[in-house]
Simulated scan of single mutants.
Amino acid sequence: MKSALIVDDHPVVRAAVRIVLQTEGFKDIHEVSNGSEVVPLIREYKPQLVVLDLRLPTIEGLDVLARIKANDLDCRVLIFTSHEAMFYQERCIRAGAMAYVTKTNQLQQLHKAIQAVMSGYTYFTSLSDSANTLNTVQLTEKQMIDQLSDRELSIFRQLAQGKANKAIAEDMHLSHKTISTYKTRTMQKLGLSSVVHLRDFAKRNQLT
């Protein structure tokens, strides 16, 4: 019996993914809305497939991926997220994901990705065309973004969304001082001098 775990904090998205999985023959389907419960649930239910969002409360998807890999858990991970593939797909590939589908695509893409992964293949977005359309400034900025660690990128996005250091610290279960250090380091790496510039940088690169 094919089994799956859906990891997403939006009930409507989970319901849609469940329908797709059922159409693809999955009978044993479990759901969870935050990242901290994923590893224990994988151990408990042993799903063959994990459909994972990257934007999650408590622990973000990239951290979840790292924990799945570190614990050598036997499951196939399909990323289903609103995050731009240009900045996140390569990170997910390095972390062990077998597929990457953005939520802006038709659900047919999710069907195809599930079919590919369950057949032992990968399913990723071709980024060459997107990269070719970037101007020189954007290409340079993408290279700068690629140099950020997963945690730095996560904090960068949250700062760009207008979240305060204290709120980010609470969400990520880190100290205010740690977030402040990450903020300073990230802005230095990106050559930014203010939060206003940070937000402009994020908007320009579709990271808000």
Rank of each mutant, 00 (worst) to 15 (best):
H83F: 07
E141K: 10
V137H: 14
N132A: 12
Q147W: 07
I68F: 12
G35W: 05
R157Q: 07
A113N: 02
V137I: 14
T208G: 02
C92M: 02
F87L: 03
D8M: 04
R91T: 00
V32K: 07
D53S: 05
R151M: 13
K103Q: 04
A15W: 11
L54R: 00
Q206A: 11
Q138R: 12
T184M: 11
S82W: 03
E141F: 07
E37Q: 11
K103M: 03
V17E: 01
R43L: 12
V7M: 02
L49F: 14
M86G: 08
N165I: 05
R94Y: 08
Q188G: 07
S82A: 06
V13I: 12
L159D: 05
Q109R: 10
S193Q: 15
Y182K: 14
L134A: 10
L62S: 05
T136C: 13
Y88S: 02
V17C: 02
S194L: 13
R157H: 02
A16N: 05
Y100R: 01
S82K: 01
I145V: 14
T184C: 13
Y88H: 04
S3H: 08
A15R: 13
K142T: 10
F26V: 00
A70R: 09
K69C: 06
N165V: 04
E60I: 05
Q109C: 04
K27L: 07
A164G: 08
A99Q: 06
G120K: 10
P57K: 12
A169F: 08
